[in-house]
Design a protein around this nucleic acid. Structure first.
Length: 567
RNA sequence: CGGGGUGUAGCUCAGGUGGUAGAGCGUCGGCUUUGGGAGCCGAAGGUCGGGGGUUCGAGUCCCCCCACCCCGACCA
């Protein structure tokens, strides 16, 4: 491809709307273009990268016997009602109607459709195991799209589904996919962690996420350097602590004006935040719950969701606090509670002595409140957000907290969908049983962002040798010099014939301009023809990925490039 | 869903107190230049996010709406 005719337009200016490195660079380098919030066009250079990513994924899917098909974007409401997800999926589901008023959604994932397809054709355990996958555009009306391709509303995903006769077989399939995923990310040149995760919206028995560490990811996960435990932070269990040995001081009521936050209260009283009993009023399905947690810790609402069993809860507003507790935020506590308010103690509160506790009276707190003497514990739960340094649930050593991009998520679904939708198979004895399923997703378009997030510098993107828009860029530094242009063309033709994926910068631009562009776009190898070539007939090969430079004779070029690309 | 911010040329932005729209970059034509986004001359390019209002007159003041970006997922 000649750059003079290639649809690749770079920009010198920093896009004002972009913050994360991948978003900025993919825009500037002309790989993507925004249409609407969370909706992007993937331009030819980006598309070429995408195709190379897909190729790796397809090869690994085929290798484990997974067959490609293409499901639909438009899914009828009836299908989603069978599993209850038409309502349960909530506002993230894009819904629309056809001319006759029939309702559809734009598929955010395809468990319903694949299960429907399975039950239409497969009857016997003899057809199993069966693995199917597709690479398809998906739609999710995200609460908050951000960072370009990282959290988009329209995106490309590879989703695979396994069908087995029982749990034991399904576990084998799960392992097969997990290993395939490890190979995929390795081949793509991405650093990823496979972590334990929650099943969330998809449901099922258990799941693992593949997370690429980057500062701009949406996933928070923990890592134990000591025993190797990794997990999404929202599922890391935190246990109760020990009873403190401190001497119990006398209970006292003190005036605490204008202490609306834990920080203010802590400063006003001169006590540590962890000695304050923080009380948060939540409303679940119209019922008030008072969640108690240590003052220095925060509630993890994902854990609250797991506790309640659904998403139908929210933190009480000022008005609700006034109405239910007859007090104001900042003075919510366990004393003088109306009977209808249920109390839940987070594990972090256990064993603390000489606490500061509010009594639902504006402007006052008790100090030196002690368990057993001044109050009794009730129901305990694990609702606390994990923090750096919290103990590893496996070995007790301090955990590291990291941020990353969730690139893959695999689930052992069990019979959640097959049971609801009647996807039954006959076993050896002729008995009909629900098929045992697994599903396996990879965020394909998001991988572009992850690759950039993990490989860029101040000058631009650094694509690796395997996944890139082109393998080689030929730069002719002066296209008005006929001899130089002729030589460049000859090399360009040769490399094409030898099977290289090559872009030829034949634009009538100055050298500096071309180098800056090349750095930005990030093609891993480039062959430069300029003064050195004219004087010494030496080609300069620049390695953008490894940031090196070589002088190569023309007759050695093909072998040289091939060797680098293979390394 | 809250909170904050921004919408003016393709991009990045400037346009006190209201007076009929500008720069740099990019694009097009020309000259010059050819190893790190060079220089000079000329040109094209605008519903000032949209609607309403105030006014003789609105990019600017008032009201409503929309879009996009950021923060939080409400921490008492």
């Amino acid at each position: 491809m000649r750059w003079s005719n290639f649809f690749l337009f770079t920009s010198k200016e920093e896009p004002s709307d972009a913050v994360s490195p991948s978003h900025r660079l993919l825009l500037r380098a002309g790989f993507i273009s925004q249409v609407s919030s969370g909706i992007y066009e993937i331009l030819p250079a980006g598309f070429k990268v995408l195709k190379k990513v897909e190729k790796v994924i397809r090869e690994e899917m085929e290798r484990i016997g997974c067959q490609e098909l293409l499901l639909t974007v438009l899914n009828p409401k009836e299908l989603w009602e069978e599993t209850g997800r038409w309502e349960a999926y909530g506002k993230e589901l894009f819904k629309l109607k056809d001319r006759n008023g029939r309702e559809f959604c734009l598929g955010p994932t395809h468990e319903e459709e694949i299960t429907d397809l399975f039950r239409k054709f497969v009857r016997s355990y003899r057809s199993l195991p069966l693995y199917l996958y597709q690479v398809q555009v998906k739609f999710r009306d995200e609460k908050r799209p951000r960072f370009g391709l990282i959290r988009a509303r329209e995106f490309i995903m590879k989703d695979a589904y396994s069908f087995d006769r029982d749990e034991g077989e399904a576990l084998k399939s799960y392992k097969t996919f997990k290993e395939a995923y490890e190979r995929i990310f390795k081949r793509l040149g991405l650093e990823t962690y496979c972590v334990e995760a929650s099943v969330g919206q998809i449901g099922g028995k258990f799941s693992n996420e593949f997370i690429a560490p980057t500062p701009f990811g949406e996933a928070h996960f923990v890592l134990c350097k000591s025993c190797g435990y990794t997990a999404n932070s929202e599922i890391v269990p935190l246990k109760r602590g020990e009873l403190e040995g401190e001497e119990e001081k006398p209970l006292k009521l003190v005036e605490t004006p204008n202490t609306r936050t834990i920080k203010e209260l802590s400063q006003f009283l001169g006590v540590k935040e962890e000695k304050i009993l923080k009380a948060l009023l939540y409303i679940h399905k119209g019922e008030p719950y008072l969640i108690l947690i240590r003052g220095d810790r925060e509630v993890d609402e994902k854990k609250v969701e797991a506790f309640f069993g659904d998403e139908d809860f929210h933190l009480a507003s000022e008005e609700e606090v006034r109405e239910i507790l007859n007090t104001e935020k900042g003075f919510v506590g366990i004393f003088n509670l109306p009977k209808n308010v249920k109390v839940v103690w987070d594990n972090s509160t256990y064993g603390k002595k000489n606490l500061v506790v509010a009594l639902n009276k504006v402007g006052y707190h008790y100090i030196n409140v002690n368990p057993g003497r001044d109050f009794n514990y009730g129901q305990f739960a694990d609702l606390c957000k994990v923090e750096e340094g919290d103990p590893c649930p496996k070995c007790g050593k301090p955990l590291q907290l990291k941020r990353g991009l969730e690139l893959g998520h695999i689930f052992l679904l069990g019979d959640r969908y097959s049971k609801a939708m009647g996807a039954l198979i006959s076993d050896e004895r002729g008995k009909e049983v629900p098929v045992y399923m697994g599903c396996y997703g990879i965020g394909v378009s998001r991988i572009l962002s992850a690759l950039v997030e993990q490989n860029y510098d101040e000058r631009g993107i650094r694509w690796n040798y395997k996944v890139n828009p082109f393998e080689v860029l030929i730069i002719c530094l002066n296209v008005r010099d006929e001899e130089l242009l002729k030589s460049s063309l000859r090399i360009y033709q040769r490399l094409k014939e030898e099977g290289f994926d090559v872009l030829f910068d034949d634009r009538d631009e100055r050298a500096g301009f071309k180098f800056k562009d090349a750095d930005l776009v990030g093609i891993p190898l480039r062959v430069v023809l300029g003064k050195k070539y004219k004087e010494k007939k030496l080609l300069e090969v620049q390695d953008r990925y490894r940031d090196r430079s070589y002088e190569v004779k023309e007759e050695n070029l093909v072998k040289f490039l091939r060797d680098v690309l293979k390394s």
